[in-house]
């Protein structure tokens, strides 16, 4: 959970920084999208580095899901008779309780997102458009519900990171009373930055600040 989560957090940060290039204009954004494919050239053929990254991410997602599913199954088996009274939660916050259903929603979102901007199956523009045009068409004000869906999913990603980053340090035995506040801050800070960074793009397109 912790190791694959760390890989995915690294990816999210890189992905967010790339997305923000949209504010520098169409040519910068499209140039960045092209660079993702030409990374490592001419030493290696086109798309080599990107394909390797995609495989690493795909495997990480699968292992992350496998860990989550086995933990959930063990949890179910560990308490065959449920509490009859209302079971109170006394600890920590909201984020912890969103991890399991949030993870499922994030998975559904990732599938949609890939169909949208990787395979163009649900994108209003096709493969002959530029990446910039596809993003702008995707979050057009008339398609406000797509923006809402993206924003909700990203909020769940933020909550996932809020608990997940801190939890990863605990799982790896790296948390101590001395660094606990710093780790809480890191988890909250990164969650906020990633959430705002990702939400900025669809919101800006929908409100016409990027067109």
């Amino acid at each position: 959970m912790a190791v694959t989560g760390a890989i995915l957090v690294g990816f999210l940060i890189a992905h967010m920084i790339g997305n923000l290039k949209i504010f520098l204009g169409a040519s910068d954004f499209d140039h960045y999208a092209e660079w993702l494919r030409t990374m490592g050239e001419p030493a290696v053929p086109r798309r080599t580095v990107l394909t390797i990254l995609e495989i690493v991410l795909g495997v990480s997602v699968l292992l992350h899901m496998w860990s989550a599913i086995s933990l959930a199954r063990r949890a179910r088996a560990a308490r065959p008779v449920k509490y009859q009274g209302k079971k109170k939660s006394n600890a920590q916050g909201y984020a912890t309780h969103t991890m399991r259903y949030g993870g499922v929603v994030i998975l559904l979102f990732v599938i949609w997102h890939l169909l949208d901007l990787t395979f163009y199956a649900v994108n209003p523009k096709g493969s002959d458009a530029t990446p910039y045009d596809r993003v702008v068409a995707d979050f057009d004000a008339s398609r406000w519900y797509i923006t809402v869906w993206y924003v909700l999913a990203v909020l769940l990603v933020g909550l996932h990171l809020r608990h997940g980053i801190w939890s990863a340090f605990q799982t790896l035995g790296l948390r101590s009373p001395r660094n606990n506040n710093a780790l809480r801050g890191l988890a909250g800070g990164l969650a906020a930055v990633v959430t705002i960074g990702f939400i900025a793009v669809p919101i800006s397109v929908t409100f016409g600040w990027v067109s």
Partner: peptide
């Protein structure tokens, strides 16, 4: 047949002796 820990922190709040989560780390 105990389950796996997901760092929810419920245990330490319920503990009558206040054993901190650090012990799990």
């Amino acid at each position: 047949g105990f389950g796996g820990c997901t760092n929810t922190g419920e245990c330490t709040v319920a503990c009558p002796k206040g054993i901190p989560l650090d012990v799990i780390s």
